[in-house]
Every structure is written in C-alpha cells, then in structure tokens.
Design a protein around this nucleic acid. Structure first.
Lengths: 139, 139
DNA sequence: TAATAATTAAGAACAGTTATCGTTTTGGAG
DNA sequence: CTCCAAAACGATAACTGTTCTTAATTATTA
C-alpha cells in the first residue's frame, strides 16, 4: 500500500465504511454494508484490506469479541466498554483512565518488559441490555 | 459440575495443570502437558472442562492472543503484559493499576452502562524478545 | 444389583479467517 | 493513448481453533 491517496476504489470504500462508524465492526459487517453499493465485492477483499490497514497502522483491532475480530478506525489511545450480552462496544471518553508515563516506566523496570501500549476494557451490561434484563424479570 | 471435591480424575488433572503454572496456557498446552501422564486424554475433554471451569467462575480467560484462547487460574483482578513477539503473558503485580470504585461509578453514569469488571492489558516486548531484537541488529 | 446420571474419546462439524490462483484493474513510462 | 508490470481483485479451497455429536464408559444412587 502506498499512501491514502492511492487507495483503490474498493479499498477506499472499506476504509470509509469503517471510519464512518463508532460501532467497532467486524469484517462481515463492513462487507454486508458495502455489498449493497458494490455487489461484486468479495469478503476476502474486506479481510485483506483490513489486514493491510492494520499493518500500516491506519486502523486498530479491538480484539476478538465473541469469536469475531472487531476493528476501530480510531488509533488513538482510548478505552472500551464491551457488553457481555449484545457485544456492543462503546468508546470510553478519552479524558478518562489515562495511565501516566511515570507509572509505565516503573512497570517496565519492575517486570523487565518494554511497554509499547496498553488497552483498558470494561465489561458488563450496556444500557439497553440492562433495561431488558430488568424487564424480563417482571414475570 | 458439582463442587471441586467431586472432580473426576481427568477434570482434576486439567485444573491442577492450569493452576500450577503462571504461563496462562492454551487448551492445547494443557493437553500436551497431560498427555504424557494420561495417554488416553482427549483434547475435547480439555476444552470441555475449561468451559466448565470458566462457567463456574473457577478460572478466567485472558482473551484470545494470536488466535489462541489463554486461560488463567487466578480469578482475582489483575493486569497482564502480553509480548507481541513471543506472546508470553506476564502478570502485573496486583498492587499496581487498580481502578477505584468512584471512577467506575462516574463511568457508569457517563456512558450509561453497568460495569461488572475490567481488564488492563499492556503490550510490547518482553525482556527476552527485547534482548534478542537488539542482538539481531548487530549485523 | 439395577437404574440413572455424569464424563469421556474419537472424530465429525463448524466458523472465522487466510491462502491460492487465475483474472482484472491500476498507474506509470514511453 | 498504448504498453507493461505491479497491485488488487473474486471465487473458492484450505486452514485452524473450537464446539458438537455419539456411543461407550464410569460413577452414583436406589
């Protein structure tokens, strides 16, 4: 991959689809979304380009949630909340939970490691699932 | 599963193998380790019992690292370091990096979620891989 | 002992992802 | 524009970690 300006039409569409949502989608989701506009798109192409983007540092993986890798266009340091019920992923405001450089340095010494990054994931029930589980108790 | 005392011999062996290492192993690793002593052990049995333990809250999953689910006998709240090179997982001392209840409460309100837990993962190079990558530069 | 429940091995099935391969598209040079 | 090489592509097979099925075995209870 050269630079962003040289994206092929499909590559561009895949990147645009990912970067226009905050839902931290799967490859499949992006594929389904784009198939409407680009009927001859292949799922393999979505996977391949997501790998290309990831390798180029243009996107990040949130990790494998419920068996599906989830992607994030926002490569800046931020935390996520993952709903254990519907597997929705919600961004935690960036102002929160920042681990300072001093702590990282101490950790590196203490554990004999070289830290390049970190991720904080909260899990529990999202608002909707929380509400639903209360409603379904009313029987 | 009833209670820990009623473990079958193989279930017991699987739990013992996991709980006697800090390597956060995969199902495969436990299987290979036990196959020596228990030749008629099946990999499916290891997977099944790990699920049973997880469901019972006896063990935790560290998540899927490099395509393999990693398990941890230590269910208490603690953080991990994951080496991006050899995928070793190192426990971070429990004294470090805990997020207080007050912060969690604020987060729950701010994001409209119900937080049940969280995990902090640091990544980078472990001591060994860091050393090796420096050595291989000397060419 | 007989009936019942729990656990297991073996291997088939499954799902998400990656690799292969022949074709098409793209972008630069002449 | 035309040619060419490199990049990207679609289709689909292959791969891999995990789960499921089934029949057999083992443990428990009556």
């Amino acid at each position: 991959m050269q630079c962003k300006r040289n994206f092929s039409a499909k590559r561009e569409a895949i990147y645009r689809t990912l970067s226009s949502t905050d839902s931290h989608p799967t490859a499949e989701w992006i594929y389904e979304k784009l198939k409407v506009q680009i009927p001859d798109l292949s799922l393999g192409t979505v996977y391949r380009n997501l790998s290309v983007f990831k390798e180029a540092g243009l996107i990040k993986s949130v990790g494998v949630i419920n068996g599906h890798e989830r992607f994030d266009w926002d490569t800046s340091q931020h935390s996520h909340f993952v709903c254990s019920c519907c597997f929705r992923i919600i961004d935690i405001p960036k102002s929160r939970m920042f681990i300072d450089q001093n702590t990282l340095s101490h950790l590196e010494n203490e554990c004999d490691v070289h830290i390049q990054g970190h991720s904080i994931t909260f899990y529990g029930l999202c608002g909707d699932c929380s509400k639903n589980s209360i409603e379904s108790e009313d029987n």
